[in-house]
Design a binder for these strands. Sequence first.
DNA 1: AATTTTCACGAAAACGTTTTCGTGTTGATA
DNA 2: TATCAACACGAAAACGTTTTCGTGAAAATT
Lengths: 345, 345
Amino acid sequence: MKQKITLKKIAKEFGVSISTVSKALKDSHEISQELKNKIQAFATYYHYKPNSLALNLRNQNTKTIGVIIPEIVHHFFTTVITGIEKLANDKGYNVMICLSNESYKKEVLNLQMLASGVVDGIIASVAKETEEKDDYRHFNELINNGIPLVMFDRVVDEINCSKVIADDKGGAILATQQLIKNGCKRIALLTTPDYVTVGNERREGYLMALNDHNMAVDHDLIIKIDDKLTIDEQLSVLFEDGNYPDGIFAVNEIYAATVMKVARGYGYNVPEDIEVIGFTDGLISEFTTPSLTTVAQHGRTMGRKSCELLLDEIDSQDTEYQYKTNLIKTDLTIRDSTKKVQLHN
Amino acid sequence: MKQKITLKKIAKEFGVSISTVSKALKDSHEISQELKNKIQAFATYYHYKPNSLALNLRNQNTKTIGVIIPEIVHHFFTTVITGIEKLANDKGYNVMICLSNESYKKEVLNLQMLASGVVDGIIASVAKETEEKDDYRHFNELINNGIPLVMFDRVVDEINCSKVIADDKGGAILATQQLIKNGCKRIALLTTPDYVTVGNERREGYLMALNDHNMAVDHDLIIKIDDKLTIDEQLSVLFEDGNYPDGIFAVNEIYAATVMKVARGYGYNVPEDIEVIGFTDGLISEFTTPSLTTVAQHGRTMGRKSCELLLDEIDSQDTEYQYKTNLIKTDLTIRDSTKKVQLHN
DNA sequence: AATTTTCACGAAAACGTTTTCGTGTTGATA
DNA sequence: TATCAACACGAAAACGTTTTCGTGAAAATT
């Protein structure tokens, strides 16, 4: 294959030293105009590009930030990435995206790989398996090595770093309140297993909203979905005995869309018989029938903010950096799976 | 901030040379067991990790492949990435993902950045704007610089490199045939502007299938959607005069899902009055009502194959490499937006 | 006692770059 | 004519590794 063109090769070509070539390409005044012209022309012709590795090694920075996400086929994460990418590029940084695939082991590997000098800082959302194991030493090690870290969405309280989280609890309260306001009496919650932190936050919001309105909690109406089993079957229990819920709050889009299908299978109509609200991390909501009312998470904003905090920390090296936690507000996008409220005035 | 630990620092700590430390950490027989033990313990304690930049510079490879995609919020691209990632990781490579955001300029920038030594090879799908400009010099420059390149999905014929494409034409033929088989007489095509190559392939398949069955082409039934305008309005023309199509083939999922909504707005039922087939690049299809029959693209397979070809080329440096083009077959996923065919036997 | 091996380590080059600090040759100045 | 500045370039260090090739001392062999 063609060998890459380097300063050394150009130097040999012109019988001058490497330093001279380097200076000539930077249009240094130390080099005669004549020689500069020749060298520059030559370099342009052969598409000379300084080797990034060498530059990074010398400058001790890579102008690259690493992002670790659990799953890339989740729309929510891709919107976050979009937000990160935009700001990073504007600031002259590149983005390296790694997937943990919800695996603890891959997360550790990715972290080690990124920590070995290839990035100036890392933005991460922790894998489910890691949450389950409750082992975060690899993150602490990162911080001990002086590599700036920002966690987003699925964050870990014990870790001392900047964080960006969606207002999950607030969103859940909004959603539940909306259902209550619309007259729902039996409100179900479709959530994740306990170890998923964001699921917990949302459940708490749900409970708080019920409590605020003096509504009793019916534990039969709280379904913790196990992703390893089929979702449909786990949802069926809600409708089997006829004592069905009249409102459903699902902690994500898939659960919400699925429960609508299941409910329809049992002969119930949305929103007439049952109102449904989901938590957005995708674009399914718009295309279901009826379209889904959801809590919007603003992934792009989260990404932008995460990147902002990270670059802040990178820029403020040597000084002791004060970690920040940022709460991104959530709000309700009303569509057709909830009843329109009557306006009183 | 804490300084990173290096061979030099360890060497100073023990009053030995850098080479000794390097060898000790590699458990070389040249170093006494006693010294090795001490150095290794020290290194482990301080989480020593060899600096990747230095290693890459020395080894003249980075064990990283770059991927350039136009948009990350497209489910199709994320499935491709998943496929690439999987194989790459299995082979000990990391993946660096860059977004062109469909912009020519960003594509050029990304390419230059990746070409400057940070990756061993590149997998790319070209941006729409690039297709529109029809300017591919940046890709050729890459190849001239000896950097292995594989293009997937949106490929460029003129460029001399390995390619992986979905059998777009075949998929379109399958879909159109299915509609014909189900008895549709007026089959509409929802497609993209002409400069989108995959759209062209699919249109050709549509035309071929019609032709094979001696059906005339009605150009009023071919709608080229302009993404800058609202999709709904552009689709309405199909239904306004009452002479509506009884079959619709859409080149992507969004168009298909949207046209079902619009048709329903005009009082038509799917699949009774109108049958619809889309081209998959997402997970919307499962959740629409009715669920969408689609042509499956097998993004993961495309990703895996792209990666395979790239690694092949990387491994076969110096020898003259024979570029390959790989066609990934597409097939029909039957759901509820098409009628069930009667089985004769 | 003289020679050869083994042992345990160091020096230096190489990867590609930038930058500081020489240094030899001009031409101008005192 | 001696001194000095300007000019145009080179040498070398530095970033952090790995690896080849020495090399001095101790141990083993004749």
